[in-house]
Amino acid sequence: MNITVTINGEEHSHDVEPRISLAQYLRETLDLTGTHIGCDTSGCGACTVTVDGAAAKACTLLAVQVDGCEVTTIEGMAQNGQMHPIQEAFKENHGLQCGFCTPGMVMTAVDILKNNPNPSEEEIRHGLEGNFCRCTGYHNIVKSIQHAAEKING
């Protein structure tokens, strides 16, 4: 089945099997391997991307479901070689260790901050409930998102 998807601002058209997930499509067809597959059943959040601006788990979306949509992956966050303030904040605050859950955390943070530019610690923790991190204990991820909010709000 042919689909056309705008990914990180660039339009892509491919013929895909209906059973291919968006995560597989990104990783295998487009070589956008920053979207990671941790559980493949929407439990861990490592595959989070945004679809039309809203965070979604790419393992539990079929590629055919996003036909005509705008998808942003972790690779689309930096602009003109400059990391997004959320990415910067993760680096500044040691919000990552092994890096595997990180793309999903960053993309979820996009959604958290879009709907709530000044979240409390509790709101951030609640917002991250769909994303597992096994390395950081979440402490510095929460700090990173708080810091990113401050940066974005200037």
Partner: peptide, 9 residues
């Protein structure tokens, strides 16, 4: 229900 990502879809 679920989490942000699940609620979005």
């Amino acid at each position: 229900i679920g989490d942000i990502q699940v609620r979005n879809r």
